[in-house]
């Protein structure tokens, strides 16, 4: 029963959660909470799959008797191959192992590749750019308006001479504050995690949506961090300054939705969530993370209580 619930939940959640979370109109008012929610949703789905496997592999009675008994049962199972239904245990262990291995492998692949690319980029950058002490950034001679950051151990922010020419010093400061917020918040890890999950299990709506949403949300969050020290209007105008006036040849990709949303957002005064909404958000995070664990442990807990209460009553 528990296993069924824990197996059905991720299947449903993988399709329903992206719709529910994707419709959240408050997300741009509290990007940090929205980021946590998406991450919790992903963790919840992965976690419940693993817990379902655990429940299938380990009968609740064994959990109920405490850890020592659990380990004893494991030893017995390993040495004699008895004590549990071998078929379900085998399947469960295989599924859990496959899920964990897949995620670990994709995470490592994404991180290693990112690091290799960053290193190569930094090497070329060292040859082309010059470090500007006053800006605290690397300046590259290039006509296009561009600003970005290079995360990693020797993190740096990069800005082109084209961007410096078209922005006022105050706007440049705001742009660099945005980039530093990315670096300080280690946003590349948020994006890398989502990337790893989306590529580990392709075509899962939740993971695909989470990857897209998280990439946009870290931008909003970095805007907010920059807005603590710089006027919001300045950030908005800097965004427009960077986004416009490009040659068509460089117009790679598409999707300026986020850009528009970001500018409009910076032109509005800040509207933080109320206490009630924040609390509801935190509770949802707790539910997403704790829910599957509670469901998984309930039978074990019941068994535990039954066992020990029985002992108490017998005295």
């Amino acid at each position: 029963m528990t296993a069924v619930a824990l197996t059905l939940y991720p299947l449903l959640a993988a399709f329903i959660l992206p719709r529910v979370l994707g419709r959240a109109g408050w997300a741009d008012r509290a990007p940090r909470l929205a980021i946590t929610l998406w991450q919790a949703a992903c963790a919840s789905v992965v976690g419940s799959v693993l817990l379902a496997a655990f429940v299938l592999a380990v009968p609740p009675a064994v959990v109920g008797h405490g850890l020592a008994a659990f380990f004893a049962a494991c030893t017995a199972w390993l040495t004699h191959g008895t004590g549990m239904t071998v078929a379900t245990t085998g399947i469960a262990v295989t599924v859990a192992g496959a899920v964990v291995t897949r995620i670990a492998y994709r995470t490592a692949a994404v991180l290693v590749r990112a690091r290799t690319e960053r290193r190569r980029h930094a090497e070329v950058l060292a040859r082309l750019g010059r470090h500007d002490e006053r800006l605290g950034a690397i300046v590259v001679d290039y006509d296009e308006r561009l600003a970005y950051c290079l995360p990693g151990r020797r993190a740096s922010t990069v800005i082109t001479t084209g961007a410096l020419r078209s922005l006022s010093p105050e706007q440049v400061a705001a742009v660099l504050a945005h980039e530093r917020a990315h670096l300080r918040g280690r946003h590349h890890l948020v994006v890398a995690g989502a990337e790893a999950l989306a590529t580990a299990f392709p075509r899962v709506p939740l993971f695909e949506r989470a990857r897209a949403e998280l990439a946009g949300l870290v931008e909003l969050l970095a805007d907010d961090m920059a807005a603590r020290r710089h006027p919001r209007v300045l950030i908005a105008t800097a965004l427009v300054g960077l986004a416009t006036g490009r040659t068509p040849a460089s117009a790679l990709g598409a999707g300026g939705d986020t850009a528009l949303a970001r500018v409009r957002r910076m032109l509005r005064p800040e509207t933080p969530l109320g206490r009630g909404q924040r609390l509801a958000g935190a509770l949802t995070v707790g539910l997403l993370l704790g829910g599957p664990a509670v469901v998984a442990l309930l039978p074990g807990l019941g068994s535990f209580l039954a066992h020990h209460c029985h002992e108490l009553l017998a005295r």
């Binding site: 994404v110 991180l111 590749r113 990112a114 690319e117 960053r118 980029h121 561009l146 600003a147 970005y148 950051c149 290079l150 995360p151 742009v175 945005h178 980039e179 990315h182 946003h187 590349h188 994006v191 890398a192 990337e195 990857r211 990439a215 870290v218 931008e219 970095a222 965004l239 427009v240 960077l242 986004a243 416009t244 006036g245 490009r246 460089s250 117009a251 790679l252 990709g253 598409a254 999707g255 300026g256 986020t258 850009a259 528009l260 970001r262 500018v263």
Partner: peptide, 22 residues
């Protein structure tokens, strides 16, 4: 590898989008 390597300040814009921004 998407933004795993670099987090960008902004994605490219079409002329229409740029107009909307202005």
């Amino acid at each position: 590898n998407q933004a795993a390597t670099l987090v960008h300040f902004l994605e490219r814009l079409t002329p229409e989008e740029a107009g909307a921004l202005e």
